[in-house]
Amino acid sequence: MRKQVTQNLGFGLLFLCITTALFFLGTIIYFITVRGVRILSWDFLTEVPKEAMTAGGVAPAIMGTFYLTVGSIIIALPLGVACAIYLTEYSPRSFVVNIIRMSINNLAGVPSVVFGLFGLAVFVKLFGFGVSVFSGCCTLGILVLPQIISAAQEALLAVPQSYREASLALGATHWQTIRSTVLPTALPGIMTGAILSIGRVAGETAPILFTAATFYMRGFPKSIFSEVMALPYHIYALMTEGTHPEQQTQIAYGCALILLFLVLSISAAAIILRQRQRKGYE
């Protein structure tokens, strides 16, 4: 009898927790949708900002966030996967490698504004990329690198040793084994890591604050070395600067809704890609 009660209590508690989590998630989506949807229109999506941010659209910011997200993943994914391959498949399991592993995990905990300052010092000044899409992509790429490396390492370690043995026993080289067996098998897991990174990158403000973002642009960036508008920074700017809080707040909610939608659709695309990959390997 008492065992039953304890069990029900346990389940009840767990249920309460999940409901609370869902409640907040639901509330966030609800408020942003309700407040943001009012301002949404075709012009809002396709026009540039007008009249000191109080009218017009946010198209440059949407494109900017899209560029920054895709660009940083293009930089971070190959680099991160390569690091993970080296760490799991090539490096000996030594003390030094363990230190490297730990450092990478700790890097994931560094505040994003620190990455922003690093990006300013290195990419913008030292390498002379200036405040630009490229500097922003590099900074964001480095920000998510630890996350991508960890996810890729997990995925690689989950590949059964018997696959490696089978491949090597057929006279495949170490590299052929990695390329043709290990990597394809680990790909869905690697993709999951990448998907999570997309959300992180798209929403970050601090790393692009000094490296890429600008408050106002009349058009789209002309090259990867131009400054760029971005949704999260645009929201920040609208809420902290300017002289027409009424209109600006509305626009900020519109931006938030678009950002939410953008992250979801990039993630959805990646999930579909992963699903198609999985079909081939299960």
Partner: peptide, 18 residues
Amino acid sequence: VDIRRRVGMVFQNPNPFP
């Protein structure tokens, strides 16, 4: 690599690739 090509192996648990 050449040795492993000449000396094949079948393992205890079937391990076809996915």
